[in-house]
Amino acid sequence: MIFILPLLAVLIGYLIAKFLKPSSSVTFKLLLSFSGAYLLSVTVFELLPEVYEHRSKEIGVFILLGLLFQIILEFISKGLEHGHMHHDPNTKQFPLMLLVSLGIHSLLEGFPLNESAHLLYGVAIHKIPVAAILSIFLFNSKIGQVKALLFLLLFALMTPLGSWLKLQFEFIQTYSAYLNAIVIGVFLHISTTILFEASKDHKFNASKLCVIILGILLAYFM
């Protein structure tokens, strides 16, 4: 399941991009808000208490390192992890640095997935809108259909690869608390960015608030 669900999430995102044209869809934006709320809640309810069973001050340092590392990655990806795409759609060059940034992010998020089914669901839900936005960019660009599909395939494989590496190598398991702390920092940055970005014209959005509350409640009671 930890290998199949992230792959399925990318496929669903691709199909949404292909058939529903979600870039201007209110429903799509609400899905993004829901995914942010659910991911943040699972991180707070499950990952944080687990890592703080270890030495607290050191864990806190690694959480902050994860947050800073995600900020660095977003200089390259230009915010795609939390639902934005600012790359040039007319580019003819394969976006290698974007793949590196998203690949590292996806690899990291795969490490703790075997420890929590709820986290697995949260990552999968989060990947759907990201994959949809990425698909729109790739297939509207001028890099070619084959390269676009190759990009999506590599992106889809990175999270299962992270989960596989965690299961195969003992030294990763030995330092899993510190790696999970880095992932927590990554998740905290992404999810809070999704949730606290200003709404259009800074108006209160009741629908967004409702899906955020729903995401929190589902993460708590599931």
Rank of each mutant, 00 (worst) to 15 (best):
L134M: 13
G83H: 03
S77I: 00
L157S: 04
P129H: 06
P95I: 11
L108P: 10
F111L: 14
L102I: 07
K166Q: 13
G144C: 09
F137W: 02
F155I: 00
P95K: 07
I72R: 00
G162N: 12
H82M: 07
F155A: 02
S163F: 07
F169C: 08
I72P: 05
Q173H: 12
L134W: 00
I133V: 14
G110V: 02
M158S: 03
L152P: 15
L107A: 06
L119D: 08
V146H: 10
A148Q: 08
Q70F: 02
P95L: 10
P95G: 10
I136Y: 00
G162V: 07
F75M: 11
N90C: 01
H105W: 04
I71T: 07
E115S: 13
F137E: 02
W164Y: 14
A156P: 13
T159F: 10
V100S: 06
M97A: 12
I128E: 05
G122P: 01
P89I: 15
H105K: 09
L134I: 03
K92L: 08
P160K: 08
K142H: 15
A156C: 11
S135D: 02
A148W: 11
V130N: 04
I71N: 06
N114I: 15
L150D: 01
A124Y: 00
F171H: 10
G162H: 09
T159S: 14
M85L: 12
M85R: 00
E74W: 00
I172G: 05
K127T: 08
A117H: 11
P95Y: 08
F75G: 09
M97P: 01
A156H: 08
K147Q: 14
K78G: 01
V123P: 00
I143K: 05
L113S: 07
I76K: 06
L80A: 09
L152R: 11
D88A: 11
